[in-house]
């Protein structure tokens, strides 16, 4: 097997913040003494990603996902530990040859010039990344067609819908055909059909070009739709690394099944508890088969068995001691 395309070893990063005090005396106090505090955003994380993989980074707001992306892309330097991309590249050195090979999309930050059509920004990127005119034209035509935004190429950005804008942000990120694509909260706040369009497109891109994709989100749908593998970050630490199903089986502790039937079960089988006339719960701890007639089952699901429920539970846990 070839060496991982991204390799992170015991990386940590913390930043300093200032707290502001309220009111008149607070303002007066701040004039002379500002309160400093250090926040550890990423703590001792190790992670390897292979070429062609789609890795989802999961975590609550402020868990450290974005910081981790910034460490990998070289926006921020690690305090301790090592981050290497393409075997030997230190991201923070920002060698042009390295930057040429990665594409980054950060949500809530825009690379599009607000008053100009997206094409203008893309032309600027063409010059910045030294893309030949022919390549640029064909690739851009392909991207806009796949994402269904060709007619919007000449519309000023401020007049685009949020979904269209996000798609153009994505196109800006892909215009130089990066080998690794970093997507930070790509589908935040956009409508379902645009989301589906983006997922389908990214999946195809990953399959066709072996582009490695690192995706952060607190939207589990993004992750389930795309990621082959997930890493869960909580309070700056990596607490899980594996497949999504692995994550579910790892954390779905109590094997309680929730069953929906087409009618009341009479008589009530053993180990089954009735919630209401068509909803039942089964404690499967000691069972080898389901004690319910399969012909009447509409749906079976394991409680605690979906990603959202597990993550909600994980992220609500207390921060570990410093």
């Amino acid at each position: 097997m070839s060496a991982p395309i991204i390799s992170i070893n015991h990386a940590s990063f913390s930043y300093v913040t200032f707290t502001k005090q309220s009111g008149f005396s607070g303002a007066w106090h701040d004039l002379f003494h500002r309160q400093k505090s250090t926040v550890a955003a990423v703590r001792d994380i190790s992670l390897q990603v292979n070429r062609g993989e789609v890795l989802g980074l999961l975590g609550a707001n402020g868990a450290g996902k974005t910081t981790l992306i910034k460490l990998m892309t070289g926006i921020l330097p690690v305090n301790t530990g090592k981050v290497r991309l393409f075997a030997d590249q230190v991201p923070f050195r920002k060698r042009p040859a390295f930057l040429q090979r990665i594409g980054v999309m950060l949500s809530q930050k825009s690379q599009l010039a607000w008053d100009l059509p997206p094409l203008d920004t893309l032309v600027l990127l063409r010059e910045i990344y030294h893309i030949s005119h022919d390549q640029f034209t064909t690739w851009l035509a392909f991207l806009t067609k796949e994402l269904a935004v060709t007619p919007q190429l000449h519309v000023p950005v401020r007049k685009l819908s949020l979904g269209q804008r996000i798609k153009f942000e994505l196109i800006c990120t892909l215009i130089h055909r990066p080998e690794i694509l970093f997507l930070n909260e790509p589908t935040i706040d956009i409508d379902v059909s645009s989301q589906a369009n983006i997922y389908r497109f990214l999946k195809q891109l990953n399959q066709d070009t072996q582009m490695t994709i690192i995706l952060t989100s607190h939207n589990t749908k993004d992750i389930e739709a795309l990621a082959q593998r997930v890493a869960v970050i909580n309070h700056g630490r990596k607490i899980f690394d594996g497949t999504t199903t692995g994550l579910i089986s790892h954390y779905a502790t109590a094997p309680i099944l929730e069953i929906v039937t087409d009618g009341p079960l009479t008589p009530l089988p053993a180990h089954v508890r009735q919630v209401d006339p068509t909803h039942y719960e089964v404690d499967a701890t000691a069972l080898a088969t389901l004690p319910v007639d399969p012909r009447h089952i509409l749906r079976v699901s394991r409680r605690n068995g979906n990603l959202d429920a597990i993550l909600t539970q994980l992220f609500s846990e207390e921060a570990p001691a410093q």
Partner: peptide, 11 residues
């Protein structure tokens, strides 16, 4: 805090 993109460009 919007400099991130400029840091990522090979210029």
């Amino acid at each position: 805090g919007n400099l991130d993109y400029s840091l990522l460009r090979p210029v």
